[in-house]
């Protein structure tokens, strides 16, 4: 189908002047007709083949196949802080993830700890509405405190519900807490934090920047 028709270019004299013309032979075009029709029929046979074999349908019906959905292991849909069986997390509030995040979707808020000079985690604010799920924070964390999970059903009606705390308690990480034998004292070191503590209402202190010269929220919110 890609062979071009024969075009014969020659010069004729018209009114005494030489004029270049291209002569197209119409029967050349007509001789392509059978191959054109064959191509059309081939296409129609293909679609009819799929129509007559409805078992070849490849659709995965989402709401009905929820129980059997499998994703690649590296699929990233939501960030979580890993809490072990005793409920301890591993975050030391070193803020490496906050620095690694390309657009400031993580804010780590710290408070002075019982141990002198060492800050502990107060709130770990993660903005799902601006997170690009790039995994930089997970890779940057030297303690492996973060993890990306497969839970993708996160549609909301209100944008404020996409900014929340990832840590369930404010306090030292698992290493420190495990070294403390007394459970009562341990519980005293941990203050529970809810999912929406702090960030709601939306971003009163977390305004995005419009240009580099304007205020940068990084300096604003560290305690």
């Amino acid at each position: 189908m890609t062979e071009f028709q024969q075009i014969e270019r020659k010069q004729i004299t018209f009114g005494g002047k030489p004029v270049p013309v291209a002569v197209v032979h119409p029967l050349d075009r007509a001789s392509k007709a059978p191959s054109v029709l064959k191509g059309l029929v081939r296409g129609m046979r293909l679609t009819l083949g799929y129509f007559l074999r409805p078992w070849k349908v490849v659709t995965r019906q989402y709401p009905e196949n929820r129980q059997t959905l499998r994703f690649p292991q590296r699929y990233r849909a939501m960030l979580t802080m890993i809490h072990d069986s005793q409920g301890f997390h591993r975050c030391t509030a070193c803020k490496l993830c906050e620095k690694a995040c390309p657009n400031g979707s993580i804010r780590v808020i710290t408070q002075k700890g019982l141990l002198e000079g060492v800050n502990k985690l107060d709130q770990y604010i993660w903005r799902m509405d601006s997170c690009l799920l790039c995994n930089a924070c997970v890779q940057a964390c030297p303690f492996g405190a973060l993890k990306m999970t497969h839970s993708f059903e996160n549609a909301v009606y209100d944008r404020r519900l996409l900014v929340y705390n990832l840590n369930r308690y404010a306090g030292p990480p698992a290493k420190v807490l495990a070294a403390e034998p007394d459970t009562a004292k341990r519980r005293q070191m941990m203050e529970p934090r809810g999912r929406f503590d702090g960030p709601l209402p939306l971003n009163e202190g977390l305004k995005p920047v419009l240009a580099k010269t304007q205020e940068s929220p990084v300096r604003e919110t560290s305690a």
Partner: peptide
């Protein structure tokens, strides 16, 4: 009306948003 987070959200996430 509805916000579907993700970058980009999976088609299944979009369907969940549609159902919402």
């Amino acid at each position: 009306d509805v916000y579907v987070p993700g970058c980009p959200p999976r088609p299944e996430a979009f369907f969940y948003g549609l159902m919402t």
